[in-house]
Design a protein around this nucleic acid. Structure first.
Lengths: 195, 195
DNA sequence: AGGTTTATCTATCCACTGTCAAGATAATTT
DNA sequence: AAATTATCTTGACAGTGGATAGATAAACCT
């Protein structure tokens, strides 16, 4: 009955749904995420997403792929602003890791602490592999081995997760520059020979 | 119509619901957690839990409190088996931290990566405070300051979270003893003066 | 151009969920 | 023994994800 309001076909519903989903995720959190709510926000029927993403987890899978891109973008943003030597680049990546958790907390949880994205999805596996490879490259560049990789990753991830969930009162009360300095020191601490 | 099957009053429904909830959580994961399913498992009507826990998140809150107890128990189990010196005790606590994530993954996520437990609940705040205090004591015992606390916590938490979600292929393919040795080295790495 | 196929979206239906309200039952108190 | 309180059941409601069938529009053919 509303055939005059808007065209029957959306035009670029897939992108619109992803954008709406990210907003829903940011506003209501992953545990209250609702496919119908996303559809309503995109101005479309509640069953429309099925054609593009299959089911709700399919939409979240696509969103996790997009999240990985933003994750890498956060790290690169820090890297281009840092010195070119490998040690400074690794520290910058760690800072970007924490930035992402802080700026996109629900995407961070979607990627690292949710069972909803389909981990066997080819796109998601590729996106996750790219994120992983970036870290491997950084650690390799400073001459680190497998254990150094685990050390750097665990430190960055622990800092990101605990900071994001507000468990470091000490950190959250510091100003931005002091936070960065401390995170940088902690990343360097786990680095071989204390670079 | 089943008045003969079992008494109208359960007797210890609160405990039964908590046990059923933990099983449900372990079997179906937190994202598929269902209050009605818990009630069915406990052999009780779907509205019975309300009287004891208010709503679904109330039940998960109580479960998170229980989770904190198990979390500390995992650490203590390692500590009593370790040398008495403060450094060995801190390493043991870190091993217990990772043990808990491995043995009770959904409880770990409920505590550290879920918005459902009511964080302002007095019991939960007390339980969380106890867990936190235990870590503070360990770090203080080795003469560490606030930054050392953050370092140790972030490392232990990062190891626990990433190991639990299967992101360290390297670690998950090692035998138990090698895992322990590596985790111990990594914890010591972030400790002041490399104790 | 006209007709057919294909992609996209809507409308309905179903089973399930959490929460609420009203009533039934049993334990406790007085 | 009577009244009060705690515990549990039943039934209802709106919201959810998913499946299906139908409507609409675009693309693709001769």
């Amino acid at each position: 009955m509303t055939t005059v309001d808007r065209p029957y076909h959306h035009g670029d519903l897939r992108s619109a749904l992803l954008a709406a989903a990210e907003m829903e995720l940011a506003e209501r959190g992953i545990e209250a995420f609702s496919l119908r709510s996303v559809a309503k926000r995109a101005g479309v029927s509640h069953a429309a997403p099925a054609h593009h993403f299959g089911d709700a987890n399919g939409l979240l899978t696509a969103l996790a792929v997009e999240g990985h891109r933003q994750f890498l973008a956060c790290q690169r943003r820090r890297e281009v602003a840092a010195a070119a030597d490998p040690a400074a680049q690794l520290v910058a990546a760690g800072l970007g890791y924490v930035d992402f958790a802080h700026e996109r907390p629900t995407l961070f949880r979607l990627i690292f602490a949710s069972a909803r994205p389909k981990m066997d999805d080819p796109d998601l596996m590729a996106a996750g592999g790219a994120s992983y490879q970036h870290l491997v490259d950084q650690v390799t560049a400073i001459g680190g081995g497998p254990e150094d990789l685990v050390a750097a990753w665990a430190m960055a991830h622990g800092l990101a997760d605990l900071t994001m969930s507000g468990r470091f009162k000490m950190i959250s009360t510091m100003d931005r520059a002091a936070q960065d300095a401390m995170i940088a020191r902690l990343i360097r601490r786990v680095t071989p020979e204390g670079i």
